[in-house]
Simulated scan of single mutants.
Amino acid sequence: MTRQKVALVTGASSGIGYAAAKEFALRGYKTYSCARRLEPMEPLKEYGVIPVVCDVTSPESVENLKSQIARECDGYLDILYNNAGQSCSLPALDVTDDMFKQCFEVNVFAPIRLTREFIPLLIKAKGVVGYTGSVSAVIPFPFSSIYGATKAAIHQYAATLRPELEPFGVRVLNIVTGGVKTNIADTRGVPETSLYQVPGIKEAVKERQQMAARNNPMPAEVYARKVADDFELVTLRGKLNVYRGHMALFLGYLMYWCPRFVVEKILNRKFGLTAIFNQIRAKYSKTNVD
């Protein structure tokens, strides 16, 4: 008998993860969705999704989820979609230890942990492990140093993982993501003690945080359909990186086409930072930084 294929989507309480879990279920997968809170995932049950509470930053929680899926699916997992994400859009000098630790815990350490723990199930199924990457991994968006660093780390992890898993018949997919309509945007403001506290900085940071929402983002449902296709079509020696979301392909290759100083100038102008940075230069040319 042909067994039912199995998919697991992390970060499925909203946005990309929610839409992807729904899409896999509609395609006939036995789909598990996980997030820290169960309530937002309850409507997914209408489509046959199995919502599970799981904190991807907790080894014990991940181990419990692995045991459940292994038990209920005879040790098979065809798709592991590491989608859970944490935003961080603040000046690098204002990011606290707790902020950058949380961002790396969710965006880097968690997908590494899940991949390691679920690999026996993926090997048995000759499955696919995928990651929600980002154009922020390659574009120096202002106030995105921490988030961009986490995504650059996961891009390189996926790139190196691919040849390591090839002998086991497990495929690896990295989705370089552009603008998608989600609620992941950071809402924290610049602290009053920030070295960047000059007129206009609050508006500039807010503009950066709302960048995706204000630039014709792709609906999460459309993104999910494309990504589900990517998971089903990926081959062992095929593409590692696929570009999904508004402007993803253009931004993904922009640094290859355009000198870095030009890109930086364009971004500073887009987010209204040219005048702000001039103010900062003038301010600290006359005042010591304490």
Score class of each variant (00 low, 15 high):
Val138Leu: 06
Thr115Pro: 14
His155Glu: 08
Val135Phe: 10
Thr96Phe: 04
Asp94Thr: 10
Val135Ser: 07
Leu121Thr: 04
Ala125Phe: 13
Gly130Ile: 02
Thr160Gln: 15
Ile119Leu: 14
Thr150Lys: 08
Tyr131Leu: 11
Ser89Asp: 09
Val128Lys: 06
Ile139Phe: 07
Pro167Asp: 00
Ile154Cys: 08
Gly133Asn: 04
Val95Cys: 00
Gly85Val: 14
Tyr147Ser: 06
Gln156Cys: 13
Thr96Pro: 01
Arg113Thr: 04
Gly169Pro: 11
Leu93Gln: 13
Ala110Asn: 11
Ala137Asp: 12
Val138Ile: 12
Ser145Gly: 01
Ser134Leu: 13
Phe104Ile: 02
Tyr157Trp: 09
Val106Leu: 12
Thr160Asn: 15
Pro120Glu: 06
Gly127Trp: 14
Ile123Lys: 11
Ala159Gly: 09
Gln156Asp: 07
Arg116Lys: 15
Asp97Ile: 15
Ser87Ile: 08
Thr115Asp: 06
Ala159Phe: 07
Leu161Ala: 04
Asn107Ser: 04
Gly169His: 04
Tyr147Cys: 08
Gln156Tyr: 14
Val135Thr: 10
Glu105Cys: 12
Val106Met: 08
Pro120Val: 08
Leu93Glu: 14
Pro167Trp: 11
Glu166Leu: 00
Thr115Ile: 12
Thr150Gln: 05
Phe143Val: 00
Ala152Tyr: 01
Met99Leu: 15
Pro163Ala: 02
Ile112Pro: 14
Pro91Glu: 07
Thr96Ala: 00
Gly169Val: 00
Arg116Val: 06
Ser145Gln: 09
Ser87Asp: 14
Leu161Asn: 03
Pro142Trp: 12
Lys101Val: 01
Lys124Cys: 09
Thr96Glu: 08
Val108Cys: 03
Phe109Cys: 02
Thr150Tyr: 02
Ser136Glu: 10
Ser145Trp: 04
Ala110Val: 03
Asn107Lys: 12
Ala149Asp: 12
Pro140Tyr: 12
Asp94Trp: 10
Ser134Trp: 13
Phe104Cys: 08
Gln102Thr: 15
Pro142Ile: 05
Thr132Gln: 01
